[in-house]
Amino acid sequence: MRLLWASVALLAAGSLLAGAAGWGVPDWLVLEQIRLPRTLLAVLVGGGLGLSGAVLQGALRNPLADPGLLGIGGCAALGAVLAFYWGVAAAFAPALPLGALFGAGLGCAVLLGGLGRHVSGAALILGGVALSAAASALLALALSLAPNPFALAEITFWLMGGLEDRTLLHLALAAPVILGGCALLLGLGPRLDGLALGEATAATLGVPVQTTMRLAAVGVALAVGGGAAVAGGIGFVGLVVPHVLRPWFGERPGGLLWPSLAGGAVLLLAADLLARLAPLLLPLQAEPRLGVLTALLGAPFLVRIARRTVA
């Protein structure tokens, strides 16, 4: 655990010192206005995604659960795209993250409202898959009706996720939401442990199963929605991080929450650092998108885990 936090600190320091032009201690203004928001957002967004993944996998007893499964990220993207679409984002900068937050909140409300009184893990997965299908269909509709090619390119670019050019305003907007979500999720540890025995047995142990599922959905909506609002679509972190950590921290769901928080931060900081350094090392014209990098880094990991699980 100490090692994980040390990695977070080390990578954060690296992130503060690494710029487009190379290493070095930058001006205070650059540090404060550009690198600090970017670094802190990577920690928050990554931590929120890692923790959300660990909670969902525990609550649903499913190693394939990913925050994207609930469709909250898709709803956030839809909200952001609509803000783009109506040109609000151009007139008023915070409209984009606010639109995404609104989309995530609405998505969570629709999910929990649609499920009604009995929220089981299976119902949550099915509802989430339906929600994310609906969100991506509406997203595709919005894209196909895009007012001009420029808007289309802009939207697609945003959907790939990234943390460049984020300001302290973005940080102020997202931090309370993500931190609130994380606080909610971190409190679910013992309940998730109980759910390892199945929903019925957990209920006989006094675990409020329905409430736990709802709290998990709300916490994930906050942590992931807040992240998507400022960073766009970043996949795979929530899925991969708990898997990577299980061999070291054991498989008890409650014991994986803090490590996954730290691990998600490490992964996103590292990916973001890599994205920034890539143009220096490779003949690239621009930074590769962060969401693209996390998926590229995550996929081989997952294949390795799948092979080990089967063996």
Partner: peptide, 8 residues
Amino acid sequence: ARSAWGLT
């Protein structure tokens, strides 16, 4: 009864 995950 089974437990999810590889609990000890």
